[in-house]
């Protein structure tokens, strides 16, 4: 487990708030209350301001993600290529809703607004890598591979 004090080492002013939260999330996968309290002390900003920022931006997560993380793109090009149906398909397959994690903690799912891979729509990111031109079959295989 990374050390929170080490992660926050280079941050000292309230202007660093977003960058610091991004670093915490990168190391721990999400923002816990303890981490936000530690940040509050370090950059001398009230906890209310930190939680205000953490809940404003959609990228920040307040609960842990799975070992594998799927971000389904819901941009316009993906929408006209039926990404909503694909999302329902993934939800049924994993038996979770967007924003949740499977019981075994293996896979979590969320939607994102646009990953800028519109020319490859419908697209999604799995553990940070973009997969395009998706259909049920490809997704099925991707998820089966993740389960292995």
């Amino acid at each position: 487990m990374p050390d929170i004090n080490k992660v926050l080492e280079k941050y000292s002013s309230p202007g660093d708030l977003i960058a610091a939260l991004q670093d915490i999330q990168k190391e721990f996968g999400y923002l816990s209350e303890e981490h936000m309290e530690a940040l509050s002390k370090k950059i001398k900003a009230p906890l209310s301001r930190i939680s205000g920022v953490a809940t404003f931006y959609s990228m920040f997560r307040l609960k842990p993600i799975g070992k594998n993380h799927i971000s389904m793109c819901r941009g316009t090009a993906c929408h006209v290529h039926n990404s909503e149906t694909l999302l329902r398909f993934i939800e049924k397959k994993l038996n979770i809703k967007s924003g949740e994690m499977t019981d075994d903690g293996h896979i979590s799912l969320e939607t994102v607004n646009c990953i800028g891979a519109c020319a490859k729509a419908p697209a999604m990111m799995v553990n940070g890598k973009v997969y395009g031109n998706l259909d049920e079959k490809k997704i099925d295989k991707l998820i089966e591979d993740l389960r292995k």
């Binding site: 819901r74 941009g75 316009t76 090009a77 607004n113 646009c114 800028g116 519109c118 020319a119």
Partner: peptide, 8 residues
């Protein structure tokens, strides 16, 4: 900050 869906 190209947030506009459909623009890349």
């Amino acid at each position: 900050d190209e947030g506009d869906p459909g623009a890349f």
